[in-house]
Simulated assay, not measured.
Amino acid sequence: MWAQEIVAGRPAWRHTPSGVVFRAVPGGTFRMGLSDAELDAVRAIEQADGADDDLEAFFAGAVQARPVREVQVEPFLIARHPLTVAQVRHWLPEYEDSFADSDASTARLEDDLDDLLKALPFRLPSEAEWEYAARAGTTTLTFRGDDRPDEDQVLDNFADEERTAAAENALGLAAMGSSNEICADVWIPHFTDAPTDARPRTGDGPRVVRGGGGDLSPWQGCDEWLLQLSATRSEFDMFTAVRPVAPVPTNQGHAEQGVST
């Protein structure tokens, strides 16, 4: 069911029935949430942009991604990029996507979401796992640093292997932050009393989504870049992408070293 390969110069695991490529994420610890340093970095961007950005709402809502806390994460596999239209059709052959430009585009699920989640042999990431994977050992706004992300960093179509590889972080994951990706956690607007071992917070209500910078493309100057940040979190609303996770296959050695931030 799993085949080890080299994809874009990095080790990968391919789920052979569906063709979905996964990367192995080593275990480790990290500081989850919007840190004081990250908030200061956003303020610096706001000051540099002058009147073009009004981030009052962002700072008022920053409590939703605080308090920052240390989280321990066990090794896992996560898809290299969100499932594409073609990949979703492996499980839902009749799936149609009004948002997609091609079969290689990110699939954004609405009414079909529950059907896909029931059909997948994988699970959703907890939001702690998602942020750990997105940060890839960094403590900055995105894995690229504390600069304001540009719209050209959004990736929605994975037909171009060269562009996909260029969008990878240090763990070989592409397009983290481009699409709003659903997590296993129920939406709670802060991290108080959240588990420190990356388990999802379960319960009734909408789930957490992470990312979403590409869902508002082309950007209209309404601070869409904030959705690219590693720590940005929001409540599931209309449609979502799915980036599944899976256990590390038992025949893989555990030589990887954890990433700590």
Rank of each mutant, 00 (worst) to 15 (best):
S217N: 03
P82C: 01
L117M: 11
A175Q: 08
S230N: 14
A241N: 01
R201S: 00
S179A: 15
Q257G: 10
G214T: 08
D115L: 14
V245N: 09
I45A: 04
T84I: 00
S260G: 10
A86Q: 13
E46G: 15
V245A: 06
G203L: 00
D97R: 11
L141T: 03
C222K: 09
V245T: 09
G9V: 06
I78Y: 00
E256D: 14
L109W: 06
L124A: 05
F158R: 09
E96T: 10
T192A: 14
R14E: 00
D103A: 15
A12H: 04
A231M: 06
G212I: 06
E181Y: 01
D160I: 07
A255T: 09
T106A: 13
D53G: 13
R66M: 09
G214E: 03
D114G: 05
A104N: 12
R207F: 02
G50H: 09
L77N: 03
T142W: 03
R123D: 15
T84R: 06
H90T: 07
R207L: 10
F158K: 10
T232E: 09
S105W: 09
T250Y: 11
F236T: 08
D237F: 07
D193E: 13
P200E: 07
L216H: 09
Y95A: 07
H81K: 14
A8G: 01
D185I: 01
G221S: 05
S217G: 00
L171F: 15
R10M: 01
F59W: 13
R243K: 05
P244K: 01
T142C: 05
G211D: 14
E256I: 03
Q220K: 12
A231V: 04
W219A: 12
N251G: 12
R108H: 11
G211H: 11
Y95C: 09
E94A: 10
V25W: 00
S18F: 03
C222R: 13
G9A: 03
D147F: 06
H90V: 09
P218V: 01
E96N: 05
G221L: 07
F76S: 02
A57W: 08
E162Q: 15
V7Y: 12
S260C: 13
G214L: 04
R144Q: 11
L83M: 11
D204E: 15
L113P: 11
R80Q: 14
S18N: 01
R163A: 15
S35P: 09
R23V: 13
D150E: 14
G221M: 10
G9L: 04
V68W: 02
T192L: 15
S179F: 03
I6P: 02
R89K: 14
F122S: 02
V73C: 04
D204P: 03
T138G: 03
N157M: 05
L227Q: 13
A165G: 04
M1D: 12
S230D: 11
A107W: 04
P218Y: 00
D156G: 07
A134F: 07
V71P: 06
T196P: 00
L120C: 11
W130A: 05
F99T: 11
N251S: 12
L216S: 11
V42W: 07
S98T: 14
L216F: 14
R31K: 13
T250G: 12
G33T: 03
D111F: 10
S217I: 08
V88G: 04
D215W: 13
